[in-house]
């Protein structure tokens, strides 16, 4: 192994510090911004750290506007979307969880046929999935809006779940198929000799052995669903069906909402996915690498 010289080592450490600083700078900004009052942000526009720290931004959001704390005592106007944070959070959890489960179930069934039962048309299906991954979501949203409007499916969580599942399913298949292909076929053959049907060999042997692949795919499906803005933004206009990204988008351009409150909501919205990624980093890395390259 080539060992870097001492000077090279110092330079490499320095480069790492720079890269880490770049990646964490916005996280530092959102944290500092959310822990101070509007007054502090306006009082000194050149200081990095505020003179006074406060948790009131989080207090007012998490209590649904009930507890105003010191900095919101005087405030008479608070956007309804800030008050319905709990609802939006719950909606986001429901949507992301359902989409994760649906894409994993449907994706596994399809990916298995692509990986093991190779007919001309399953290979074609795989190519279509690769192509489908490229479709820009805005292209789908306009016709989906018109269609859902005609069928009265606007303003419902299930509409969002169906649309998002369809959008993500090709990506899930692209991630799972290469994984299934790595499970030794002999294990299935052995199970079939013991009397399993083809499907139960898949269900009892290949699927459980693919648990790490399913975890990778599931983590990524959850994260993308948690992030998705356009689908719920266009399909839902009523507050009770809004997800977190839609609530965040609704604060853009609201002159009554100041940065400190926005930063607090952003921080709360990114916390679950950041924690998930750090906890499951091995799976996330693997899923992104497989889905990106082997598709």
């Amino acid at each position: 192994m080539l060992k870097p010289s001492p000077i090279a080592q110092i330079l490499l450490h320095f480069a790492n510090v720079l890269v880490i600083a770049f990646f964490l700078l916005p996280i530092v900004a959102v944290t500092i911004g959310s822990l101070q009052s509007e007054k502090m942000l306006q009082a000194d526009t050149q200081a990095i750290l505020p003179a006074e720290w406060t948790f009131d931004n989080f207090l007012v959001i998490l209590s649904g506007g009930e507890q105003r704390g010191k900095i919101f005592e005087q405030v008479t106007y608070l956007p309804d979307n800030v008050k319905s944070f709990h609802r939006a959070f719950a909606n986001s959890v429901i949507v992301a969880t359902s989409v994760t489960i649906l894409t994993l179930v449907f994706g596994s069934l399809s990916a298995y046929t692509v990986a093991r039962l190779r007919f001309g048309w399953t290979i074609w299906l795989m190519n279509l999935n690769v192509m489908a991954r490229f479709v820009p979501i805005i292209v789908l949203m306009i016709p989906l809006y018109v269609t859902f409007r005609n069928f009265g499916m606007l303003n419902s969580l299930s509409g969002v779940i169906v649309a998002l599942t369809g959008f993500l399913l090709p990506y899930a298949i692209l991630m799972l198929a290469p994984y299934f292909a790595t499970i030794p076929r002999e294990l299935e053959d052995a199970a079939r000799i013991d009397g399993c049907t083809h499907f139960s060999a898949f269900w009892r042997i290949t699927l459980p052995l693919s648990a790490p692949g399913l975890a990778s795919c599931g983590a990524i499906m959850f994260i993308i669903s948690w992030h998705e803005l356009l689908i719920p933004l266009i399909l839902n206009s009523r507050a009770e069906f809004m997800t977190l990204p839609v609530v965040i988008a609704s604060l853009v351009g609201d002159v009554h909402v100041f940065f400190n409150l926005m930063m607090a909501i952003c921080l709360l919205a990114m916390l679950p996915s950041v924690i998930l990624v750090l906890l499951l980093q091995r799976f996330v890395v693997q899923g992104l690498q497989v889905g990106g390259v082997k598709g």
Binding site: I20, L24, P26, A29, I248, V277
Partner: peptide, 30 residues
């Protein structure tokens, strides 16, 4: 053999976890 490289390997995943719309708002504050 560069321990800070291992730290970068983990922390570089953070941006991937940030919702795009939240990322946009954070940068509008930046």
């Amino acid at each position: 053999g560069i321990w800070t490289s291992r730290v970068t390997r983990i922390l570089m995943l953070v941006p991937y976890a940030v919702p795009p719309i939240a990322n946009g708002l954070v940068w509008s504050f930046m």
